[in-house]
Nucleic acid binder design. Sequence first.
DNA 1: CGCCTAGTTGAAGTTACTCAATATCCGTGG
DNA 2: CCACGGATATTGAGTAACTTCAACTAGGCG
Lengths: 247, 247
Amino acid sequence: MSWPPFDSPCLAPPPDDAGPLGPCLHCQVRHLAVCSALSPEEIQALETAASVQALEPGAVLARQGETRRHVYTVTRGALRLVRVSADGRRQVAGFALPGDFVGLSGAPTHQHDIEALAATELCRFGADAMQRLGTRYPHLQAKLLERACVELDTAREQMMSLARMTPIERMGDFLLRLAARQARAGNPGPAVALPMPRADIADHLGLTVETVSRSLTALRTRGLIALPGTYVVEILDPAGLKALEAA
Amino acid sequence: MSWPPFDSPCLAPPPDDAGPLGPCLHCQVRHLAVCSALSPEEIQALETAASVQALEPGAVLARQGETRRHVYTVTRGALRLVRVSADGRRQVAGFALPGDFVGLSGAPTHQHDIEALAATELCRFGADAMQRLGTRYPHLQAKLLERACVELDTAREQMMSLARMTPIERMGDFLLRLAARQARAGNPGPAVALPMPRADIADHLGLTVETVSRSLTALRTRGLIALPGTYVVEILDPAGLKALEAA
DNA sequence: CGCCTAGTTGAAGTTACTCAATATCCGTGG
DNA sequence: CCACGGATATTGAGTAACTTCAACTAGGCG
């Protein structure tokens, strides 16, 4: 099995004084701090509860049904959240990129398989430690809640996409969303990396691989995107893509 | 416009000593308390921040794009969360029944129109008051977070349904889910009330009204459900319905 | 009692899926 | 370094399924 090439930078470049926890954990904590406006005390508490974890492409972080013992924040790479039904139908609930939380759920067990799409690094927090921290630092928990609510909004957007958009519109929506996330993570350009194979996009958008391929071709034919490589999309006409959805 | 008949009981029957806040607020607070194992102090704080709101069928609680000033818990009736795109495509993100929270979102504005499907009563909390309460009572905020995570799980289930199920399977899934929610609210029987018209079910499941109608007929023909009235479904064979989805 | 809205049922038309063949990309081994 | 092999992606033709369009039925309110 070969995986799409994908290397994402740390969210915030590690400063020289990264400290004993190493650059990646540091930048993750910095990221959390930036997002949450945490106090030094809170950051210290987070750092104490965290540990770093690395995954090879294809590695499995968790399996559907396993007990949820940790929550994670992604610092590098990419993950997919996959659900497979008894008869083999596959659904990719989402992709986790640097800065995203993974493992948030109301259930005591994981609701998805969580698999690395590329070389991935995460910060791991014990679920109960996180809960204790949340109780001790309400501000932190408030940010977690906000994060969950944003995820909720995203999921509902995705529902709209699945329920009411044509394949081409879904593809455009997906690309714009991915571009926005990569922009937030520091990738400015029109080139968007696709860390996942076509099959994952298909299972994410409720389509077949063939339809995904045809949709990409259609967008290229219309001059909205370019496809310099299998796993790279250049967004030539963001406004045109956006217009697809609304129209 | 006429609305499906729907009357849901208060979650917990109001005791005689309902107090100055009235029976419905009382039972809502009791509900929150039961779900959250709140302390008397926390309950008192909640009651102080809350006020009751009633809606006629068809009344609009909020419009997409409006500033979110409140969060609500439903004590009676039913609501729908609707999103309409620029070109008129409609999506019902979900239905809120007694015991559900409404208004949770990561965005500063409402992401959906929120409309009453029946005579509805809610408890209203100021959004910032709620935030203050959450900071002051971490336990309460933890419950809110859990609630949001459960919503997130639900939304992802819905994604699976939209992406990978046939119309008949979606219909079965929807009915089972609705039955489970009504069971939790105290309705035990095989009879499930549909507080919404067919068009709302269609826009919720990503189908057309016609397909919804045909799916219901198909389920009835297979002996899985009965349709004693337009807005009532009897689930004759829950196992058979469940088997549809997995198969 | 009649109109109007909502729901059901039927026939035709699109659209995305399925099946099949070809092309391309990568990693491997000669 | 090039050639090969396997997997992934693209492209093409046919089919099934859902939607669309249309007619009909049922129920509620004036």
